[in-house]
């Protein structure tokens, strides 16, 4: 009968000690890494496909795509070539974005200061909820509200501003149409970016070293002197970053701006006049009836918008991260 022999060959080998991850871990790492890379890839793909589809339009128009004023479809019967330029829209986007910052950022920073240093305990929590809910409201809601509720009021305010400050070129008025102006669009955008800027500013203020605050109070500072001497110098970078994040949001806003802004392919400095521009809104506006050639131009416009908002966001995040790390 056969017998299993236990010979010297079968002595267990000493265990190999290694830092090499096991097979399951290798699989895990590969899966997680590829999952993590998807966002990077996606961002690259967005840029690539917009360029890919819009390249023709950008090449045809050259630099005038960025500086040109008009958006004219080709009319073959009259031998007129298509001419697409987003200069006016780009300018309008900047104007409404900057107006939103001018109106929104001071309020947001004030609110952040209020929440961090002024608010009584019982008011803090509900107030934070208010700001969070504001951030959660979809832009279509702001669009509807802005058009039907805010605009009648804002029109009246614009008339007052024109009446008393009309001598300043910005508030001048060539034609008495006060609805759907960059001023009103800026107002709606200001409301929309306030929660973001408030949240970032509050985060930054919360990191102010407590010792310095206490030191300022111990030296007899009033609340404002303390804020001026400690909180603002410490949090300045973060607040600027937060404001830029808000600007990025404002530049890319589509639906809410579309309802309260009259798109006009012209560059005007009068912000109360019913004529403005927005790249994002223009894309929605023109998308419906666009032929393939115009679609390419819209893709190119989307790419420009993508680049601008990405650049603003990069800069903002770099500033915020730098401030947060210090």
């Amino acid at each position: 009968m056969s017998q299993t022999l236990i010979g010297p060959k079968a002595t267990p080998r000493p265990r190999v000690i290694t830092t090499e991850p096991r097979f399951t871990d290798k699989v895990f790492r590969v899966v997680v890494t590829s999952g993590g890379m998807i966002s990077l890839v996606l961002l690259g793909l967005i840029g690539f496909f917009l360029v890919f589809n819009g390249f023709e339009a950008m090449r045809n128009a050259g630099l005038s795509f960025l500086t040109g004023f008009d958006w004219v479809d080709a009319i073959p019967e009259e031998n007129q070539p298509a001419s697409y330029g987003i200069g006016a829209m780009l300018y309008g986007t900047m104007v409404t974005g900057i107006l939103a910052m001018i109106m929104g950022v001071p309020v947001a920073v004030g609110t952040a200061l209020f929440l961090s240093y002024y608010a009584p305990e019982w008011l803090k929590k509900p107030m934070v909820v208010v700001v969070d809910v504001m951030a959660a409201i979809p832009s279509i809601v702001y669009g509807l509200w802005g058009y039907f509720v805010l605009m009648p009021h804002a029109e009246y305010w614009a008339k007052l501003i024109h009446k008393y400050f009309g001598f300043i070129p910005f508030f001048d008025m060539p034609a008495p149409v006060f609805t759907r102006s960059p001023f009103i669009a800026g107002l709606v955008l200001a409301i929309m970016i306030t929660p973001i800027v408030t949240a970032i500013a509050r985060e930054v203020f919360a990191q102010t070293p407590l010792e310095r605050i206490q030191a300022a109070y111990a030296l007899g500072a009033t609340k404002w002197s303390m804020i001026k001497a400690v909180v603002i110098p410490y949090g300045r970078g973060g607040v600027i970053g937060g404001a830029m994040l808000g600007l990025g949001r404002a530049l890319g806003e589509t639906v809410a701006v579309y309802t309260v802004l009259n798109l006009v392919y012209d560059i005007r400095i009068e912000i109360l006049l019913s004529a403005g521009g927005s790249v994002a809104s223009m894309i929605v506006n023109k998308f419906g009836e666009a032929d393939p050639v115009e679609l390419q131009a819209l893709m190119a416009a989307g790419f420009v918008l993508f680049l601008v908002t990405l650049a603003v966001n990069f800069l903002a995040n770099t500033i915020i991260n730098k401030t947060a790390r210090e």
Partner: peptide, 15 residues
């Protein structure tokens, strides 16, 4: 990812 959260929604639609 931080930057991606700032991509305008219209650009996502175009993409």
């Amino acid at each position: 990812v931080q930057a991606m959260s700032g991509v305008p929604s219209i650009v996502a639609g175009l993409f």
